[in-house]
Simulated assay, not measured.
Amino acid sequence: MTTAKLTFTDVALTVNVPSGTRIIEISEKIGSGITYGCREGECGTCMTHVIEGAEFLSEASALETRVLKENLAGRHDRLACQCQVLGGAVKVRPG
């Protein structure tokens, strides 16, 4: 199984995660400050800023793209409940 390194800068912690893991799953386990509401990609509460490694993340779905646009997200923002880490090293912080 492929693994990736996921760093949460708000708690200064890096963890190894299996490929395909959603950012919100690990955030909950380690106590990062990424908050969430629906976990379905509808509310935009879990917006997360990707500092490094955006190329190692899953493509944004049409739903995620719409919600990010509605919430005036920046170019490097993603929804932690929708975004999967696929490999490499990714660094994020609550958005």
Results as ranks from 00 to 15, higher is better:
residue 82 Q to E: 05
residue 47 M to Y: 01
residue 94 P to Y: 03
residue 74 G to I: 12
residue 18 P to M: 11
residue 93 R to I: 14
residue 79 L to N: 03
residue 89 A to D: 11
residue 29 K to A: 15
residue 50 V to M: 01
residue 70 E to I: 11
residue 46 C to T: 05
residue 13 L to D: 05
residue 41 G to I: 12
residue 35 T to H: 11
residue 92 V to T: 06
residue 34 I to W: 04
residue 17 V to G: 07
residue 49 H to M: 14
residue 39 R to W: 02
residue 70 E to H: 03
residue 94 P to W: 04
residue 37 G to R: 07
residue 13 L to Q: 13
residue 33 G to I: 04
residue 91 K to I: 14
residue 35 T to L: 14
residue 36 Y to W: 14
residue 19 S to M: 09
residue 5 K to S: 15
residue 87 G to M: 05
residue 24 I to L: 15
residue 26 I to R: 14
residue 41 G to T: 12
residue 34 I to G: 05
residue 18 P to A: 15
residue 63 L to C: 02
residue 95 G to C: 08
residue 5 K to I: 14
residue 17 V to M: 06
residue 28 E to T: 09
residue 35 T to D: 15
residue 81 C to D: 00
residue 47 M to C: 05
residue 24 I to G: 12
residue 2 T to Y: 04
residue 90 V to Y: 04
residue 84 Q to L: 01
residue 34 I to R: 06
residue 31 G to C: 01
residue 13 L to Y: 01
residue 76 H to E: 14
residue 77 D to P: 04
residue 37 G to D: 10
residue 12 A to Y: 06
residue 52 E to Y: 03
residue 90 V to F: 05
residue 1 M to A: 13
residue 78 R to Q: 06
residue 20 G to F: 13
residue 33 G to T: 05
residue 4 A to R: 10
residue 78 R to Y: 04
residue 38 C to F: 07
